[in-house]
Design a protein around this nucleic acid. Structure first.
Lengths: 74, 74
DNA sequence: AATATATGTAAAGTAAACTTGACACTGAGT
DNA sequence: ACTCAGTGTCAAGTTTACTTTACATATATT
């Protein structure tokens, strides 16, 4: 049902990179925790605006957090 | 309302880079022409998925087409 | 003058992103 | 045994992205 073609490394980044909880990330980017859960699970892809804010929260360019199609590079 | 914080270079790219009409771009990325109009006008920001497809249509990385906040670099 | 192409706009509808509130499970700490 | 932090999930609601249809205007072409 409308297979989501966009993937992300949010969960990995929370642990490896920042040791951040879902709630902390949610607060930092201004959404609810449920939204972070949904994104990590791949239920849907974020708005471009939210994607920018999340990437910014990790101090990374957008395309190092989100990718289109298969994750070939990481 | 709810000022759109994401900008883009779609219109510039259509002319300078590809000589593409709104309709051609719309077809290429699988949306209607009205969506392209709205994006160029900055009425709203696209989904992340659509942003990826548009960047791909221009053969550019996403962040060379879309930017967060002011356009400092171009 | 007529036709075609490219663009702007607007109203009403659908679909998807995101919120709110609530409850369940696990693992660590006391 | 109890509590608490972190996570998963679900249902119902709001907001925003996107569609559909339709009409307007400007420029170029015949």
């Amino acid at each position: 049902m409308g297979k989501n073609l966009v993937g992300n490394h949010i969960r990995k980044l929370r642990f490896n990179h920042n040791e951040m909880t879902q709630q902390q990330l949610a607060d930092k980017v201004g959404v609810t925790r449920q939204t972070i859960v949904a994104l990590e699970k791949g239920n849907y892809s974020p708005s471009l605006e939210l994607a920018f804010r999340i990437a910014h929260a990790f101090g990374l360019p957008l395309e190092e957090v989100f990718f289109y199609g298969d994750d070939t590079s990481h």
